[in-house]
Amino acid sequence: MSFFSMMLKMSEGLSKTCAIFFLTLLFSLPLGMLVALMRMSRNRFISTVTRGIISVLRGTPLMLQLLAVTYGPYYLFGFSVSRNKLIPVVIAFAINYAAYFAEIYRGGIESIPKGQYEAAQVLGYSRLRTFLRIILPQVVKRIMPSITNEVVTLVKDTSIAFTVSYQEMFTIGKQIANSQTSFLPFVVAGIFYFAFNAIVDFGMGRVEKRLNYYR
């Protein structure tokens, strides 16, 4: 198999890699905000439970969470294993990444000085309006570098979906490596991931620049 046809075959799996990537971001970014707000809740019960969940999600490998989401329902309750593996994969990825995003959001929100809330209160802003119009725009700017970090990691983490036999790009690469007894598919995979991340880097850099309006 030539280098070119290898790349062609593996790029078929690239669309599935992209599906994991975009769907995970779509669900985990908002979910992370929800989790962050729960984590910072004044209700002690909610914040403690959320803290526990985040600690489990960050303290166990994504690969195990993926196995748990895919095969757990079958072993525990006898439910059928999903034929479309994209569903359990995106659920597991979205939950896992939401935990990381939540902590990034929390760090951002808590970095805003208390004086701003007090000033907003004096000006007659409601709490919701204070958060949406004053706090959040500053938070987004501050956390962009950390978010980029996670997004770049996500690109590479998509290869973990292999563990539940989801046929993404790296899985196909492994299959070719096997049948051809060749190391070349891994080189191709490396190139693909790097190119993907170069695009992500560029895009996130542009966003960061746009948000830089105070300087």
Partner: peptide
């Protein structure tokens, strides 16, 4: 054709009606 990385997973897929 679903490729799994171990036989255990192949059999779990069968047991769970995924294949």
């Amino acid at each position: 054709v679903v490729t799994c990385d171990s036989f255990l997973k192949c059999f779990t897929e069968l047991a769970g009606n995924a294949v």
